[in-house]
Computed example of a mutant assay.
Amino acid sequence: MKDYKVETLIYYSKLTTDSRHIVKSSKKEIQEKLDEYAKEGYSLTSTDATNFGSAVYIYLYFEKTI
């Protein structure tokens, strides 16, 4: 049997000349979530991202066998 979890992270765009500011600011938090779920025995199975207005939504899909 498998247990599934979805983690949603939201980042907002801001006026800047750095077009990669969301990538740079999100790396640390995403790595922390990966580490957190790995400690609980979950593995990352898929990711997805969408945008709405000035927000970027990143979805991390995890699973583990129970």
Rank of each mutant, 00 (worst) to 15 (best):
S26Q: 02
L44C: 04
E32S: 09
Y42V: 03
H21S: 12
K33L: 01
Y37W: 09
E7S: 13
M1T: 09
K39Y: 06
Y37D: 03
L34P: 02
Y59H: 10
Y59P: 01
G53K: 02
V23F: 08
Y59C: 00
A55S: 13
T50Q: 06
E32W: 00
Y37H: 09
L15K: 13
E32T: 07
S26I: 01
E36D: 07
S25I: 09
Y61M: 15
Y12V: 09
V6N: 12
R20Y: 14
S13H: 08
Y37L: 07
Y42E: 03
I58A: 03
E29F: 03
Y4N: 14
K5R: 15
F52G: 07
S19T: 12
L44W: 04
N51E: 11
K24A: 10
T45A: 08
S54E: 11
E29V: 05
T8Y: 14
K27E: 10
D3I: 15
K28W: 02
S43T: 09
T45R: 07
V56D: 03
A49Q: 09
M1I: 07
A49W: 03
Q31K: 08
F62V: 12
T8Q: 14
A38P: 02
D18E: 12
D35L: 05
E36V: 00
E29N: 05
T8M: 15
T65N: 15
K24L: 12
T47I: 08
L60K: 04
E32N: 09
L9W: 02
K27Y: 05
Y12P: 03
D3A: 14
A38E: 10
H21K: 11
E40I: 00
A55M: 05
S54M: 08
F62T: 11
K28V: 06
D48A: 10
S13A: 13
I30R: 03
E63I: 09
Y57R: 13
D48I: 00
A49D: 01
D35R: 06
A55W: 00
M1C: 05
I58G: 00
Y42R: 03
L9T: 02
E40G: 00
S26V: 01
F62K: 10
S54N: 13
K2C: 06
Y42W: 05
S26R: 02
T17L: 15
D18S: 12
K5T: 06
K39M: 11
K24W: 02
G53Q: 04
